[in-house]
Design a protein around this nucleic acid. Structure first.
Lengths: 196, 196, 196, 196
DNA sequence: GATGAATGAGTCTTCATTCAT
DNA sequence: AATGAATGAAGACTCATTCAT
């Protein structure tokens, strides 16, 4: 019986742990030894699988993005109703549980880095394209079915995505004026007023 | 004429330079010596005026925020027309010139940090409150004057602010799908459709 | 036919590869993994045959020395003419082909180490003795046959050996003033003037 | 009263200590911390004056070479007699005292590196050129004055230099067949037989 | 016999911070 | 008020070595 590919397994374990540490402490203060402790291996092992810290972080970001996308696969196939679907999709971005908060924190950390790191930008692009096109598809479909109002679907998409992004970071940053509930209300209200 | 307060002057020079360096290289890779080089003093001098790096960064962020607010003072008094005012105010956040891009970059850097740094959060709050209340005031005033549609002005505010935030970061991160022009169009369209 | 001794075979393969790597990259930057890659086995295998790096290097040096000596066995039996023989023998040390250059490089690397490593010195001694005694014998024989001038044959030997050594290292180090041709001329001229 | 340039002073102290450590332990096992201990400063200080280990080593080699050359300045002006001069000059290379042994060890260490390091080669070249041209000048002058035999002075130079080099390394490596006395005899004999 | 995953000791290097001048 | 020399703690990274399979 073939031993499962240890390398692939280890890489995933390490990347998952890296994301955990990033969510907990941020990229700036992340030490390889933190990741090692989190995953339960020595620092040497981290370096055995990842050439250097930069590579580890970049791959961790990519891992986070891929996870984020695949986590929504089921959701996207769950309902044929465009209004339902859009609402559920938008709600899936609310930082209202451990998993989503972690994903948002990791996203926020890396997004800030991507402003001046071209390599990170190319990882972001994958997500950016997916997020935009998925949202666009839902809105277009709703319009085609006559369930959504008329208007440039790309513009609705841009508004919605930006708003989710902006609200989420305010929630994450503990803004006194914003929290998950208000975020949800705000997004639903936007959908009600402009799209549906 | 009294000799200008050297200390106050130096502190400002250093804070301004710190913001420049943050915009250029990011907080993560900022070294005290970079700031020293930028401002033209020695590293010793930086420490003479600021207890430690953390303090310097926090004050630099605060400086950036105060500048951002005061830069818009004139604009806010410039026109009595609510539609004009809202548009101009929103446009003032477009990252379309050296100054605004720098401010946004600094903001983005510190905002990411504020997610896990309570001290930074208190600096953010100052801006958050100002931004929110100013936007709220403009929208409320427009509604009172019957120039804006009805609807919860706080919700409009939240939508608008979040959208500006979300769009700006996409522009900063060189998103292939977003740029300053699209950002302006998106925001104007939002104002047209929902508020005005 | 008996199965060839795998252990002896492997050890030789590894030692030969070690010499190659030493010639290519030097002892200082040699990694066990380089040797492993060169020989086509894993690092584990290297350690399976050699206790540690130091042992590997020492044995590789010894291997290089033994090779160097045995490579000249045929030559030494090739001609009865002392002049011919001395010339051929000296010429065999010219770093004028891949094999000799490699041998010289390995020699140079280890020789430098031997200055402070007694274990290496004992390996050097084997070669030192062989080189000196062989040269001495050729010169003595030439004198006995009346083909070479009079004079202390040990002193001639010392001069010749040192000169070969000194010239070779200059050639290896890419001295602007020394190359293989000049080295040959210099050595031949020395032989002409002093010995023959 | 102006404070003497601390930087120049420190750099020399550190380079001198580096040479000491190289002579003692060799380049391969030299640690920045060894140099720091030797010179009496912290490792941070070493890096304050030298960008990295490589730079430190290269400059230390250059320092050793410059010292070696300047140490012989007086000697070269000491006597008008070519025979005397040549003998004294050659004798000055005998590894017969602490200072010369140290210089030879440092030289040997770096020379081995220079085989594959172009930067080191350029440092060597400085010495190579000086050594060769100085020796050449002494021999030529002796011939002009009719004190030395005829013959290509460049060839004599090459022989002599190579021989010194080769003999010195044998002495350094504790060859059983070579020591300082035999080295001196050999060189003097060569001068007697070939040049004078 | 051979492997390669895992280790961790050993070092270089960075940089905030201090302090004598 | 300002400097810059000096520090040393902290952390990334390398690689010989081990050992279960």
């Amino acid at each position: 019986m073939a031993r499962p590919n240890v390398e692939a397994l280890r890489r995933e374990q390490i990347l998952a742990s890296t994301c955990k540490v990033v969510a907990k402490r941020g990229v700036a203060s992340l030490r390889i030894s933190d990741v090692a402790k989190e995953v339960g291996f020595s620092t040497g092992t981290i370096h055995y699988y990842f050439a250097d810290k930069e590579t580890l972080l970049r791959e961790a970001f990519s891992f986070n993005v891929r996870n984020s996308i695949s986590r929504r696969k089921d959701l996207l196939a769950s309902t044929p109703d465009p209004v339902d679907l859009l609402t559920r999709y938008v709600d899936s971005y609310l930082p209202d549980n451990r998993e989503t908060v972690k994903a948002w924190r990791v996203w926020a950390e890396f997004w800030a880095i991507s402003i001046r790191d071209t390599d990170m930008q190319s990882v972001i692009d994958v997500f950016d394209v997916d997020w935009r096109s998925t949202t666009f598809r839902i809105i277009s479909q709703g319009q085609t079915e006559g369930r959504f109002r008329e208007g440039d679907p790309m513009q609705f998409t841009n508004m919605l995505i930006a708003m989710i992004d902006g609200l989420a970071v305010q929630v994450l940053a503990n803004s006194k004026e914003m929290n998950v509930e208000t975020m949800r209300d705000t997004l639903h209200s936007f959908i009600d007023r402009l799209i549906v």
